[in-house]
């Protein structure tokens, strides 16, 4: 029997929710809803993010994104993307809870449209309010370990540090900060740490998971790849590879070589010469 990743791992737990796949995938920026549906399936994800926006009241009726997301397969995680104040993020969370009847929210309170970096004071304020209102808050934050600890202390379900800016494809820029966040949020608060944003390719996902992250959330890395479907397959493999490598425990780095084949039992060196010569 061949062992599979899910057999050799425990599921990811976020609040009251359990996921076998440790990859969370966004639904934005796909060329078509059909392609998005294929990519979600190929990625193996069980949790997908969506954004809250005004319904279009003029023009021809458009197909709804949710018609392409099978809610028996995927848990829907509404975000507050595009909110630049705590108040707007809280209102958006209230709207998504009413529309989907879910306590889940991926909280983003952003500082400005150019950097899309989280605004720390507003993030703390919104987080505190939503946790107290009973939301299961997965909070997007920078990779600042102290901010991550403050958010964990508020009672969130998961802290989601950015590897690098949203959609930038720069990967995990400060692995040491992620390590410190893992020591506090994961090890002391016993909360899952999900690296969110900045993933450019499969190795970025593996690096985050090898550091010990509990999961990775990505969107653009798949949606804007030249071939999104192949990248979705790559991301599925990368999350499993990184997670298994983390659980397995890497070998220490050494300066010098260490032969894998035994030195004992080798044939004689030709330098020893032929008898009689």
């Amino acid at each position: 029997m061949t062992a599979t990743a899910s057999e050799l791992d425990t599921p990811l737990k976020v609040g009251d929710y359990t996921f076998t796949s440790r990859l969370l995938v966004g639904t934005g920026k796909y060329a078509t809803f059909e392609l998005m549906r294929e990519c979600l399936a190929a990625s193996g994800t069980e949790c997908v993010t969506v954004a809250v926006r005004r319904v279009k009241l003029d023009g021809p009726a458009e197909e709804n994104l949710l018609s392409f997301v099978d809610e028996s397969k995927y848990k829907i995680l509404p975000n507050t993307a595009g909110c630049f104040s705590a108040e707007d993020a809280i209102r958006t969370a209230h709207l998504s809870r009413e529309a989907l009847n879910t306590p889940l929210v991926k909280l983003e309170v952003l500082a400005d449209p150019k950097t899309l970096l989280p605004e720390p004071v507003g993030t703390l304020e919104a987080c505190d309010k939503l946790v107290k209102e009973g939301f299961t808050v997965l909070v997007y934050t920078s990779d600042d370990p102290i901010m991550a600890r403050r958010l964990a202390d508020l009672g969130v379900a998961s802290v989601m540090p950015a590897g690098s800016p949203i959609g930038s494809g720069q990967g995990v820029l400060n692995p040491n900060n992620i390590r410190i966040i893992l020591e506090t949020v994961r090890d002391e608060f016993k909360l899952p740490v999900i690296v969110d944003a900045g993933v450019g390719t499969a190795s970025d996902v593996s690096i985050a998971m090898e550091l010990g992250a509990d999961g990775v959330l990505l969107n653009t890395g798949i949606a804007h790849a030249k071939d999104p479907l192949r990248m979705a397959v790559a991301m599925k493999a990368a999350i499993e590879a990184g997670r298994m490598a983390y659980l397995a425990g890497r070998i220490p780095r050494k300066l010098y070589a260490n032969a894998s084949s035994p030195m004992e039992g080798r044939i004689a060196s030709a330098k020893e010469g032929i008898p009689g010569e």
Binding site: G26, R54, L65, L95, A99, L100, N219
Partner: peptide, 10 residues
């Protein structure tokens, strides 16, 4: 009034 639904997002 604000009437909202869901669109693709990350």
């Amino acid at each position: 009034l604000e009437i909202v639904t869901f669109v693709g997002g990350g």
